[in-house]
Design a protein around this nucleic acid. Structure first.
Lengths: 341, 341
DNA sequence: CTGAAAGCGCTTACAG
DNA sequence: CTGAAAGCGCTTACAG
């Protein structure tokens, strides 16, 4: 079966192809009656514009790229789902591009991809959102992009942000409400704004509750399981150990569990624990891990829509929606054990 | 900067665009000298063919689709990485298509995608590989596809297979070598060939070692954490409980860990445990989970290459390579505790 | 509000 | 082994 073309639609509707094109592209200046008529024929014939032809004629690929460098595949898959959804909605294709933010070839690779796939715009996720060299390259090459970022970059570029500090503050507050006063904090990689925002939330929660900030309860991690184990060992061997630990992601929290098990410290009876990201690991640990979930899929679809509306003519700008993260309480947090205090 | 076109290359090389096209498409019947000359100019100008134009003229999208319905995102991301690699290598684009194998709309959705994205071929993964209605649809619509499958479907279609039974047999053998004779087995969804192959491997291992097959040690699961918990409870409350359990995936194995913890059964001292898939969970449990890893990325790249070589003219068929799965021993398995015997 | 003409950058089918 | 012509299905820029 041969595909239906714009000419076919035009013939059947008794108009020129150009007018069909106007309807397909949602252009103004088409009379309501011819628009209706053409839409009817498009439906009847199930006409779908040929993307290659659209793209060739308009010199736009109708493709957007999603750049990510994240060790958590659930994170990646959630992002993809969000962006994929809006792509389908607006007739765009999605080019996924796993990359290595630290690689010296990052930009060269991207340049090649840009040449071969001719993407019309990009959605960037951390840590690329903070890679100034990359951002500069995109600006200089005239590639539109949006950021999904824990920082509010909205002053300069299009971005969708989540406030890691607010939700972390909430998590710490819930530990405080459980009676914890000495709360260990395992950081992520310190250069990442997400890490800094989480630490900030921790500090704000302490301050709000008049708990003094004890530097010795802050231990640096790097988002890996192993770094969580080491950090936890350090915290748990502290002369005045914490009764709760907040780890800046779930993998490090899993590391804390391992360290606690080795040291025969029972969670949550002797130690409360909170992670970040709500990876599957969190639900499968025993006890379940209290953690924080970002609305990743919605963030991604929002970012994608922001980008596409900017790219397409004849669309309204998108209303910016506030997306909230969620604290998920599971068995790993509980009241302070008074016997230990 | 304007993009370099085939005409630019032709001008500079002093040939017609058609001849450049021949070189780009690796067609025969080009003299070695002009081929060299043109290749040189292509390099100098960094010419990349415009995919939209290629696609429009040749009526091929230069796109392949990857269909998956798998709850494990690491699985998904590994597959994507493999297919993406060959796509880049051969100048193809990748369309990712998460789907729901059980959805009544599966085929309709795919049909829409096929119309709008005009993919030249598809890579299918389980469980879609066993969805006869889907396969029939693809055949009738003339869409080429390859399968990544635990079954050897090579008789009828192109497929890349892994032998789940062989590797499961190895895993069970290693438990037997540790002295285990009563080994519980938690199945996956019974309709999936992967599940059946794993059970077969279990049976073969027992047979080889003259251990009688005890039906009461086989409990049905459905690949979820929860089903693992329930299955383990049943096995561990058996009047003559197993000293080892093989779970047909890691999520169910994590469920076994939880059940064991609840029943105060120590792993690996009182119970050995083996999972399947090597998800991150496996490495983050305490103790680490012994599991089986499929070479997913390589399977996917092999499948993708099989498909693309079939799609492209002027390529050689791919040599079929045998890919082996791997047993990963971690702390959750150990020798039988003689005191309990 | 609508349309005729030209062209996007390739490949096809044909000719030599 | 190489090339001139036509065309893929759209959009652009222009005209009315």
């Amino acid at each position: 079966m041969k595909a239906v073309t714009m000419q076919d639609v035009a013939d059947r509707a008794g108009v020129s192809p150009k007018t069909v094109s106007r309807v397909v592209n949602n252009e103004p200046r088409v009379s309501e009656s011819t628009r209706k008529k053409i839409e009817k024929v498009i439906d009847e014939l199930s006409f779908k514009p040929n993307k290659s032809a659209q793209s060739l004629a308009a010199d736009r690929s109708l493709l957007i790229g999603l750049l990510y460098d994240n060790p958590s595949s659930t994170y990646v898959v959630d992002l993809q789902a969000g962006v994929l959804g809006v792509c389908n909605k607006f007739g765009y294709g999605l080019v996924i591009h796993p990359c290595e933010n630290d690689s010296p070839e990052l930009i060269q690779r991207l340049r090649e991809l840009l040449v071969s796939s001719r993407m019309d715009g990009l959605v960037l996720t951390p840590p690329m959102t903070e890679n100034q060299e990359l951002l500069d390259f995109l600006v200089s090459s005239g590639t539109p992009y949006v950021l999904i970022s824990p920082l509010d970059n909205s002053q300069s570029e299009l971005s969708v942000s989540v406030d890691d500090s607010v939700i972390t503050q909430q998590a710490i507050q819930s530990l405080i409400d459980f009676g914890h006063r000495r709360i260990g904090f395992i950081t992520g990689l310190r250069k990442r704004s997400g890490s800094e925002m989480r630490l900030l939330g921790y500090q704000q929660a302490l301050e709000k509750n008049n708990i003094s900030y004890d530097e010795s309860l802050i231990v640096q991690g790097n988002f890996t399981f192993g770094s969580g184990v080491l950090a936890a060992q350090e915290l748990l061997r502290h002369e005045n150990p914490p009764t709760a630990i907040f780890a800046s992601n779930d993998y490090m929290a899993a590391g804390v569990m391992k360290a606690a098990l080795q040291l025969r410290i029972s969670i949550p009876h002797e130690l409360s624990l909170c992670g970040f990201d709500d990876t599957p690991v969190a639900g499968y640990m025993s006890p379940g891990l209290t953690t924080i979930r970002h609305p990743l899929e919605r963030l991604a679809s929002h970012a994608g829509e922001l980008l596409i509306r900017q790219l397409k003519k004849h669309t309204q700008p998108l209303e910016v929606e506030t997306l909230k993260s969620e604290l998920i309480l599971r068995g790993s947090t509980g009241p302070v054990n008074n016997k230990t205090n």
